[in-house]
Design a protein around this nucleic acid. Structure first.
Lengths: 343, 343
DNA sequence: CTGAAAGCGCTTACAG
DNA sequence: CTGAAAGCGCTTACAG
């Protein structure tokens, strides 16, 4: 039972492969092929269970209908959600997705980018790592469709969809300040990622602008080493909170939040009585089991959808017109005890 | 700046494309091509930044080096973890992965299978839904490399890697019984999936074998409708627990566990004081924040790795010999208060 | 040691 | 209305 090809059908029905191809691609009427012939060809194609070889189509047309998705780690909740939305949205346009995890390793990221290019993906959806700037610029200058998500480089002209990190963080900080917290610590990670810097800037600005009456307030930042061990990082977090006598802590990302909470639990520090906690980037865990944590929710679904749209704009040669190619989505601050979450 | 092809390099160096191809594929010495020529070709290929077109290679060789991964939902923690392991393991063999979510919809599953076949993936890694049995049998009979994961159909001859659902569940049940629980409920889902049935069978058998002294014990099963709303399901769970006056409950899968816990929290039912909870299939949430839940841990990483191996065996024409193609991995029961988790 | 040629399975001008 | 032919970019027998 060999695979049936266009040629097989052509031979069986006694017509040329061109005709079969036209019919199977719905161009029968356009080519004014007789109804009878059309029926006959369609019938035998069906009978033989013909499936076009997409690889041959790709080589011929130059389109693979495959998108390359480069994330930090597909097993991480945030990226997995992103991947799902992208899968669903891309499917609407007839595209499939190949995913790759960079693990925040720029060498690996570059290699993956090269590999995806060799496989002729039609476009790239990327949550970049710090070392990928040059490669991404190059792709874009070669007019390869690229969209960056979640993170970006300053002054980057490549289309992207980011989150309003500054706004979300500011809102959360206002909340803490209004509630009377004065010793607010900020915990971030040393990945040099733009979105982290924006969050930190919002934190710093909020602290700087605190009313003079709350004189005790001062900037207190801990920068965790991404590649250190979990235990080492937890130790640092715990020390940071205690030695600075913090009454509130802001985790710059969901990963840190989970790590931090594990640490707080081990240290038996009660939330929010002893320590108020805010985390940028929501997680099921918070929503379901630690409702006392306030969160700044990232609009993952929207990000995935918009990213696919920006990519389609590039693939379809600006068909939606020259709309804005650099989006900022709002992050939604949800104060503690809220269990509702927008869809 | 057009893409450079083999032909370009051949023209620039004044040799035939065959020679260039041999050199670039490391067959220079095999073909006894002169060292000088080899150097020259390699140098210009490098200078031009030549990247082979993998689509053309695929069409010619009949190998895409792409694996199709069909899971229930890539955004679900379990499947995302599986995807990550598979990505890492497949990479070692030079394969990339295209993922697809079936959403337990057999129509969608069939369509995805067809699509992957058209794209000429070299092999399939599948967590099947109940309606896919025929299609999978067909693929296998056509000698397409296929490996099933997590779930299976009874009497299925297709290579697969499953979990010892019966053993894991039995162990957990023994634990509950030994602890003195007598009104143990079992909550499962109506997907008709083999692994669910195995878990339920283990539960039933354990109940049936309970010492006569504990006469009150009886089989108490709730089967949730997968497609019902979350609220509806929570209502059912809550009613089930109360009306049966359960003192312990066993959730047949992680998805149900999370749902159930959300429900228990809303009802203010304390764990484990008022109700002991065991869940098949671990989740970070349990490990980190509800240590009072006992779990039956699925070896996700091992499953992913072994699945890739079984697929490679088929791709490499049984190169590892005729080893067992149907694996059962042990699930590890971890009684409550355990926070350690094996790597 | 190297080249000319066929062919993987399609699509699409071009010709009639 | 339909067919012959070129070509997408490679690999690999085959010939010399």
């Amino acid at each position: 039972m060999k695979k049936v090809s266009l040629k097989d059908i052509a031979e069986m029905t006694g017509v040329s492969t061109s005709t079969v191809s036209f019919i199977l691609n719905g161009k029968a009427s356009e080519m004014r092929i007789s109804e009878a012939l059309k029926k006959k060809v369609l019938a035998t194609a069906n009978r033989l269970g013909y499936q076009p070889n997409q690889v041959a189509v790709s080589l011929r047309t130059g389109q693979t209908k495959i998108l390359g998705l480069l994330v930090e780690d597909i097993s991480n909740n945030f990226f997995a959600m992103l991947a799902k939305t992208i899968e669903d949205e891309a499917e609407k346009f007839g595209y499939r997705v190949v995913y790759c995890s960079t693990e925040n390793d720029s060498k690996k990221g570059q290699a993956l980018l090269r590999m995806l290019a060799q496989r002729q993906v039609d476009g790239f959806l990327i949550t970049p790592t710090s070392g990928m700037e040059q490669d991404i610029r190059k792709l874009h200058s070669q007019h390869k469709p690229v969209v960056l998500m979640d993170r970006c480089f300053s002054g980057m002209e490549v289309p992207h969809v980011l989150v309003n990190n500054y706004g979300g963080t500011s809102e959360a900080m206002q909340h803490l300040i209004k509630k009377g917290y004065t010793r607010i610590g900020f915990i971030t990670v040393d990945l040099g990622l733009n979105q982290m810097l924006e969050r930190e800037a919002a934190y710093s600005d909020a602290i700087a602008k605190m009313p003079a009456t709350k004189a005790k307030a001062k900037k207190t930042v801990l920068t965790i080493n991404y590649h250190s061990s979990k235990e080492e990082n937890k130790k640092q977090i715990s020390k940071f909170i205690k030695s600075n006598k913090l009454d509130a802590v802001f985790f710059a990302t969901n990963y840190l939040g989970i790590l931090g909470l594990e640490c707080l639990r081990e240290q038996q520090i009660r939330i929010p009585n002893e320590l108020a906690v805010v985390c940028f980037d929501d997680h099921d865990i918070f929503r379901l089991y630690i409702p006392d944590i306030s969160v700044v929710q990232q609009p993952v679904e929207e990000m995935g959808r918009k990213a696919v749209h920006l990519l389609m704009d590039q693939l379809g040669k600006e068909r939606t017109g020259s709309k804005d190619q650099q989006l900022r989505l709002n992050a939604k601050f949800v104060a503690r005890e809220s269990t509702s979450r927008e869809a």
